[in-house]
Simulated scan of single mutants.
Amino acid sequence: MRLKTNTLAIALLSSVFMVGCQPTSPPTDGPQPDLHEDHDQADGHDGHAHPEHGPNGGELLELGAEEYHAELLHDDDAQTVTINLLDSAAKEAVTIPDQEVTLNVKADGSGSQFKLTSTGEGEANSTFTSEDAKLIELLEGEHADITLVVTIAGKQYRGQMHHDHAHGEEGHDHAH
């Protein structure tokens, strides 16, 4: 009887250890699917793919947790700075009722604030411009830290970027 009890105890312990050592999911043959294949891991934005430029070729500022984007265009020929408000995919225009947005620029150790005014009228504004010579001068400098302040759907957003103006580089497009 003692032999049966010992054999039964050993069998139970062996089954517990065998069950505890099993992998949590059964192995499959062939390559495993990439559960994140729609993400670009090399872009530095939490594994999500992002466009590098806006629909007009401008630099993008992220607003919120990618809820919206803003495209910054600096046109040397027209001497204008333009902000276009865009959706989360940075493709379609987003409108706000405000007639202006604020751009804070820090360059050469000092900060300045600029108001960009809507190019439209009424409550559906998505494009804002400035011809302020000082703003254009700061953006033409070597480096500038830019913060856009805008309210969309009742929530204030701050989009930040570091703007490098690479002088003397071939192929550098100033309409950014």
Results as ranks from 00 to 15, higher is better:
Gly171Val: 07
His74Tyr: 10
Ser130Glu: 07
Asp108Asn: 11
Pro55Leu: 01
Glu170Tyr: 12
Ile96Lys: 02
Phe114Met: 00
Cys21Thr: 14
His162Trp: 13
Asp132Glu: 07
Thr151Ser: 11
Thr5Glu: 14
Lys106Arg: 11
Phe17Asp: 04
Gly168Asn: 07
Thr28Gly: 03
Ser118Leu: 02
Asp173Glu: 15
Thr119Pro: 01
Gly154Pro: 03
Phe128His: 00
Glu169Trp: 12
His39Lys: 14
Asp43Gln: 09
Ser14Phe: 15
Gln41Arg: 13
Ala65Thr: 13
His74Trp: 08
His172Phe: 15
Glu140Cys: 08
Asp108His: 01
Gln22Ile: 07
Thr95Tyr: 03
His69Pro: 00
Pro26Met: 15
Leu148Arg: 06
Glu66Gln: 12
Gln79Pro: 04
Asp34Ile: 07
His50Ile: 11
Ala153Met: 12
His174Gly: 13
Val81Tyr: 02
Leu61Ser: 01
Ala133Gln: 14
Glu52His: 09
Thr80Cys: 06
Thr5Leu: 14
Glu67Ile: 03
Asp132Ala: 05
Leu116Thr: 02
Glu123Leu: 12
Val150Ile: 03
Glu52Asp: 13
Thr24Lys: 10
Gln32Met: 11
Pro55Gln: 03
Ser130Ala: 05
Glu59Arg: 13
Ser15Arg: 07
Gln156Ile: 10
Ser14Thr: 13
Ala90Pro: 04
Phe114His: 00
Glu142Leu: 14
Leu13Ile: 12
Phe17Val: 15
Asp43Met: 05
Thr102Lys: 02
Gly47Trp: 04
Thr28Ala: 09
Leu13Thr: 07
Thr127Cys: 00
Val101Glu: 00
Leu61Asp: 06
His163Asn: 09
His176Gln: 10
Gly57Phe: 08
Tyr68Met: 04
Ala133Gly: 09
Gly44Arg: 01
Val150Pro: 08
Val81Gly: 05
Ile96Asp: 05
Ala90Phe: 03
Arg158Met: 09
Asn84Ile: 04
Gly54Asp: 05
Glu92Phe: 11
Asn56Gln: 12
